[in-house]
């Protein structure tokens, strides 16, 4: 049974998750008519910059996060940004959209200079998230759990982060067993996606390098969060 405290914790996280979304006009821009590969890249860069701002605002609302020491807050954001953004993109991508929009979005991503070897694992991940048909609560909690992963580089007070992540894992586990009574493996499948996300981190680093080679520029915020000079 989910306790009252757990219900309250989940509500705060879900409200923050719903409140901080990519601005509609930004999302619409992505679905407009065709652009060149260069303009696609600029659009996706602007989208990613928006996503980082949304990620930081969401994270500030996670109960207890702002009580962590400042350096660890920065280390957690930098360490989880790529995973949290892919998780968020996968959730947006798999959401029901007017027909035709999904392939416009997919087309735009495919024509933005991302190397093929990265494209496949990324779309496979989007598909694997889509197949779970996650509820908003599960999406919000899984994103918070990803951000509060203690073993990120440069995190010093692991225990303090674990004390925040544990209760979220506990309420997510209960939620999964309540919402998916006939699928005892569902919670494990969700956590399995976090493992998949880690591999995307590696591909993302490769992708940045290939973009850098073609002299693509990133915004200052992306350079900082992705540690790109």
């Amino acid at each position: 049974k989910i306790t009252k405290e757990q219900q309250a914790l989940m509500q705060v996280i879900v409200d923050a998750y719903n409140r901080h979304q990519i601005p509609q006009d930004m999302a619409k821009k992505l679905l407009q008519d065709q652009y060149s590969a260069e303009e696609n890249f600029l659009l996706l860069t602007e989208m990613a910059t928006n996503q980082v701002q949304v990620l930081v605002e969401f994270t500030k609302n996670i109960p207890g996060f702002l009580s962590l020491n400042h350096e660890d807050q920065i280390a957690l954001l930098k360490g989880s940004a790529v995973e949290a953004m892919f998780l968020r993109s996968a959730q947006v991508f798999s959401r029901k959209r007017p027909s035709g929009h999904t392939d416009v979005l997919e087309e735009r991503i495919r024509k933005s200079g991302i190397s093929e070897e990265f494209m496949t694992p990324m779309f496979n991940f989007y598909k694997s998230i889509g197949e779970l048909h996650m509820m908003q609560e599960e999406q919000a909690l899984l994103t918070a759990i990803t951000i509060l992963t203690p073993d990120r580089p440069y995190v010093r007070d692991h225990q303090a982060v674990e004390r925040l992540q544990e209760p979220m894992l506990d309420v997510l586990r209960k939620l999964c067993s309540l919402q998916h009574p006939h699928e005892p493996q569902y919670f494990a499948r969700l956590l399995g996606r976090l493992t998949e996300l880690r591999t995307l981190n590696h591909y993302h680093a490769e992708m940045l390098t290939s973009w850098r080679m073609n002299d693509h520029k990133f915004t200052p915020l992306l350079c900082e969060i992705w540690d790109v000079e």
Partner: peptide, 16 residues
Amino acid sequence: EEPSLLKKLLLAPANS
């Protein structure tokens, strides 16, 4: 040292 944009975003009041 460039002022950290992340720090600025973190220090801004929540829900700005």
